[in-house]
Design a protein around this nucleic acid. Structure first.
Lengths: 191, 191
DNA sequence: CTCTAAATTGACTGATTAGTCATTTATACT
DNA sequence: AGTATAAATGACTAATCAGTCAATTTAGAG
């Protein structure tokens, strides 16, 4: 019986993921989600107390997966350069493997439907990212701001690359990833 | 009587701008827009044929204003470095002066409510930007991709800076802008 | 002041929505 | 097999929505 539960709940999450990124939160009806998931409308409200509850669980899951993918094998790299390169490739690889989730987190990370509680819980999983950037930043003048700036720029740049690759010929993939990292890393060097 | 016309239409556009960025397209009702603008619901449909028509005009206006601000006084700069610096400051200055419009274009630039026609018309005003980036890029290997990548990264980085400044103490403003440009320009140098 | 046409109004409507609930079905345990 | 509990259903509802329209106001021209 446990299998069924997971099946339908997972189907609802996947359907909502697709529709939310395509049509937005209010642009997606609970009937559409249920239909896409192949379940009755009532089933949605068996697993989630509301549409907002659904999108929060979706966001929580996606952000968790992203952070785990980002941090993968970072410790096996010896230099800071190699750690950032690994981080860069980890983000992009996950984005290309999970384009809908990647788009989703980008689209809803600062949306009013995600509760501040969800945001806070999720944030803790990215502390290693802040630490890594802090190691790289030597500017103590506006430390707090520069860390946040670099974190955002690095991540946003990876989003640019993922979107570029998703809209380009597959053979250019590795060149784009490599070139993108050169640009970003050069920006971080000697600062 | 012309004054009235402009007044109410402008009020509707401004109200919609605020509400769309706050609550999204479907999350904003035409009644809310009318109320915020201080007009009757019917008036909205006197100036716009639909909610979609309204958001398209809003997008067209904002993108036009942004492109004009971006290109301001670029020709007075002699070196490529100074042109990019001017471009950088132009974007950020406009973003800080018009935070709602800046947020709006970022949020709706790839949304399904903006017609492809609107997108195309607006695009032509950014050709100078592509040309400027092309001047800087020496990598002929993946020229097409690298130009688009750098364009997006530069613009996204400016968005990061604007958001950072909007959420920080005003005295740090100029330092953040300057530091941000150093990061971005260093990334473009020697590529 | 009068006439005309555009601007403005807000009550109204048909359609759609999030969420409910009484009922049925599937499952696990003994 | 029998029983208890959780899963699943879909018709239903109260609320809300985008857009309409007949009536009213406003403004400019002669």
């Amino acid at each position: 019986m446990k299998k069924q539960v997971t099946d339908k709940k997972a189907a609802l999450l996947q359907a909502a993921l697709k529709l939310f990124t395509e049509r937005g939160f209010h642009g997606t009806t609970s009937a559409q989600i249920s239909k896409e998931a192949g379940v009755a409308t009532g089933t949605l409200y068996h697993y989630f107390s509301s549409k907002e509850d659904l999108i929060n669980e979706l966001y929580f899951n996606a952000k968790g997966k992203l952070s785990r993918s980002m941090g993968k094998d970072l410790h096996t790299q010896s230099t800071l350069h190699d750690k950032f390169k690994k981080l860069w490739c980890n983000i992009i690889e996950w984005g290309l493997d999970n384009p809908e989730e990647f788009l989703f987190v980008g689209q809803f990370s600062s949306s009013p439907y995600i509760t501040s509680y969800t945001q806070e819980v999720v944030m803790d999983e990215y502390l290693f990212y802040s630490d890594l950037v802090k190691e790289k930043i030597t500017n103590v003048d506006i430390m707090e701001h520069s860390v946040n700036m670099v974190k955002s720029m690095f991540y946003q740049s990876s989003r640019v690359v993922v979107n570029l690759i998703l809209n380009s010929e597959p053979q250019d993939r590795d060149k784009i990833i490599e070139y993108g990292f050169q640009v970003v890393w050069a920006g971080l060097d000697d600062l």
